[in-house]
């Protein structure tokens, strides 16, 4: 499995750390209800198909990446840095 890191180019999966669903990008407000935090931390659509999740190029540029991919075929549709800015 290879991810095309927007900074480093195509790299083997072993350079990356996987975190989880891109839901982690949408942190509830500090005063949000418990349910919002439960959804944020635990509950997932978990699709059998296209999903978006977060990867960290740990053995590379250290960018956190949002990856759009298919959980059934492992096809990778897009990789983009979570934070904009330069490489």
């Amino acid at each position: 499995m290879r991810l095309n890191c927007p900074h480093c180019g195509p790299r083997d999966r072993r350079e990356f750390y996987y975190y989880g669903s891109a839901d982690y990008l949408n942190r509830p407000a500090a005063d949000a209800a418990l349910q919002a935090w439960d959804d944020y931390l635990h509950n997932r659509d978990n699709p059998a198909g296209v999903t978006q999740d977060l990867w960290y190029h740990e053995q590379g540029c250290t960018a956190w990446l949002k990856v759009k991919r298919n959980t059934v075929t492992h096809e990778i549709l897009s990789v983009e840095p979570v934070a904009g800015g330069a490489a």
Binding site: Y19, Y56, V82
Partner: peptide, 13 residues
């Protein structure tokens, strides 16, 4: 280190 990178890049880049 990974945690700091996450918090920084995701919430306050």
């Amino acid at each position: 280190m990974r945690h700091l990178e996450f918090v920084h890049q995701v919430f306050c880049a």
